[in-house]
């Protein structure tokens, strides 16, 4: 339950943003984020809230692991 997903910010409107993870888009809140974000930045998202900004390299590394989980889950569901 405590997994947070690195997500790329593609739209910002006030305290809300749209993020993209492998083509899946989601609206999230920036309310909990202690720092400013810009378009293209990566944030860690948990339960609809960005909880931390992450640098691009770290995000790509973490996403590799998330992708494995997604693929494994899809295999389980087949």
């Amino acid at each position: 339950m405590c997994l947070a997903i690195p997500s790329r910010v593609i739209r910002i409107q006030d305290m809300n943003a749209t993020v993209d993870v492998y083509g899946a888009r989601r609206d999230i809140s920036l309310l909990l984020l202690p720092e400013e974000v810009a378009l293209g930045d990566f944030v860690l998202v948990h339960a609809g809230f960005a909880i931390q900004k992450v640098d691009n390299d770290a995000a790509h590394e973490a996403l590799k692991y998330i992708k494995q989980i997604i693929e494994e889950t899809e295999e389980d569901e087949l």
Binding site: M1, C2, A4, S29, A47
Partner: peptide, 17 residues
């Protein structure tokens, strides 16, 4: 509202909204 400290700030944020 279940979960550890990863999740409870999101619930607080929702109550704020």
């Amino acid at each position: 509202a279940t979960g550890f400290e990863t999740t409870s700030p999101s619930v607080a944020g929702t109550l704020f909204e």
